[in-house]
Write a protein that binds this DNA or RNA. Structure first.
Length: 162
DNA sequence: GCCAACGTTGGC
DNA sequence: GCCAACGTTGGC
């Protein structure tokens, strides 16, 4: 099982909105970056876990997790002229953009702010900090378990507040 | 194929 | 709102 980090602007789609749709899966669509597209199309698999990252907001950070329930399929929005993600060059015969479906897993009891995570040596190599502007990115197993540990840590030392 | 101009992402 | 980093576009 692989792990991924998906970025979203919470004012557009937040962990709370994902939680509210827990009765059914949510489509992760509108990804218009080729590197991210390649992950969605070729790598993201059913059962993979996803860390939900809030970006472009007051406190950017990891807000919770989800599970992939449907692997890559053509993003319908690329063919919809009314959609903000419409791509006039997209061709149904060879779709350009892909989506996956995810199901809400949990919202962390506290947000894990990126600026704190950045200082954690174990997380220095995260793609999140190595490469900007990538909205779908792989997370190593070590990074994943470390992050979940942080999310569940109940007693933190004052000099250790991540 | 190069590269300048431009657009977008995303932290601050 | 600023700006750095990076991706995309388009002329040549």
């Amino acid at each position: 099982m692989a792990c991924w980090l998906f970025k979203t602007e919470p004012q557009e789609f937040s962990i709370d909105q994902l939680a509210a749709s827990s009765s059914g899966p949510a489509r992760w669509d509108g990804i218009r970056n080729y590197q991210a597209r390649n992950y969605l199309r070729d790598k993201v698999a059913v059962g993979d876990s996803v860390l939900i990252y809030h970006s472009g907001c007051k406190i950017p950070g990891i807000a919770g997790s989800a599970t992939v329930v449907r692997s890559g399929y053509p993003d319908p929005a690329q063919f919809d002229p009314k959609s903000p993600w419409f791509d006039p060059a997209a061709n149904p015969a060879s779709p350009r953009w892909f989506a996956v479906d995810i199901c809400f897993d949990r919202k962390f009891s506290r947000l894990l702010p990126a600026r704190n995570l950045k200082r954690v040596p174990e997380l220095n190599d995260m793609v999140l900090f190595r490469q900007g502007r990538l909205s779908v990115q792989p997370v190593s197993e070590k990074e994943r378990s470390f992050i979940l540990q942080l999310a569940d840590a109940t007693h933190l030392h004052s000099d250790d507040k991540v």
